[in-house]
Design a protein around this nucleic acid. Structure first.
Length: 272
DNA sequence: GCGACAG
DNA sequence: ATCTTGTCGC
């Protein structure tokens, strides 16, 4: 019994339902527990997918450990379903809403949508950004009923100081193909990008190509595309262009952004 | 010491 | 991320 969208749990399975949670198998310190409720008996099953860090030092160590699990592969050139993920914060900054929207890649219609309320899991530190949002996003991913063929993340993948940004992190934890589409740069330099939609320039950091600066709309500031897990940069760029026929950002990101903002600005509700 | 620094 | 008005252009 486990969520169909999660990679093999690193630390075991949690069951509990209404009672006290029990961890079967290895019980790590600081587990990240992703829960999902089965439709049948309402029992809560949860996968322990990672040891969750509490300090910057632990976070760096976690990145080092997980980085080794990134898989380089061509990935799907023509996926049937694509997921967009995003998070919105309230004024105080201690509450958030996360959204995962699965679109049909052919016509960009919504196939599935999950939104969830939560709290940031880490303070914002450039380079450790994923630790803020991954728990909420994983919880939302666990509730999907339609399996996405690729994750389109709001942030970077390998275009990261240690080559393990949010998109890579989510890819490894779910083992799904993933890449990031960022609005601004974190690392790297690039030559000027042609003004035409579709033009791109290699994003280079420390001598290696870590992504692409891609123009999705003629005359509009380009986006930063970088691979996360199990997909190649060319496929990620081609897909980004397909997903952004009209606007600067892909429809996946726009739909997820709308969904999480919507939940945030709405009266409190449960999302069982 | 002074910038740069995903969201 | 979030706080914010008008403005230029398809």
């Amino acid at each position: 019994m486990r969520a169909p969208h999660l990679a093999d749990p690193l630390g075991g399975i949690v069951t509990g339902g209404q009672g006290k949670p029990r961890i079967h198998g290895r019980a790590p310190p600081n587990p990240l527990i992703v829960t999902c409720v089965t439709a049948g008996d309402n029992t809560v099953y949860a996968a322990v997918v990672e040891f969750w860090p509490r300090t910057e030092e632990e976070a760096l160590a976690t990145q080092d450990a997980l980085r080794a699990r990134v898989v380089s592969a061509p990935g799907p050139a023509d996926p049937a379903t694509v997921a967009g993920l995003d998070v919105a914060y309230d004024d105080s900054g201690d509450r958030l809403s996360a959204a995962v929207v699965v679109l049909d890649a052919a016509d960009l219609t919504v196939r599935d949508l999950v939104t969830i309320n939560g709290r940031p899991a880490f303070r914002y530190v450039p380079g450790l950004f994923a630790f803020r949002e991954v728990p909420a996003l994983m919880a939302a991913l666990a509730k999907l009923t339609v399996r996405p063929d690729v994750l389109v993340c709001d942030g970077h993948g390998l275009a990261h100081p240690r080559r393990f940004g949010l998109a890579a992190h989510l890819g490894v934890l779910t083992d799904l193909p993933s890449f990031g589409v960022g609005k601004t740069r974190l690392v790297g330099e690039w030559e000027p990008v042609g003004e035409e939609r579709g033009s791109r320039s290699a994003l280079i950091d420390e001598g290696e190509t870590v992504g692409a600066v891609l123009r999705t709309r003629t005359g509009v500031k380009p986006v930063f595309v970088s691979v996360g897990h199990r997909i190649a940069l060319d496929n990620a760029c081609a897909l980004t262009l397909r997903l952004a026929p009209r606007h600067r950002l892909p429809e996946t990101t726009r739909a997820a952004d709308r969904a999480c903002r919507d939940l945030l600005s709405r009266p409190a509700r449960s999302c069982g």
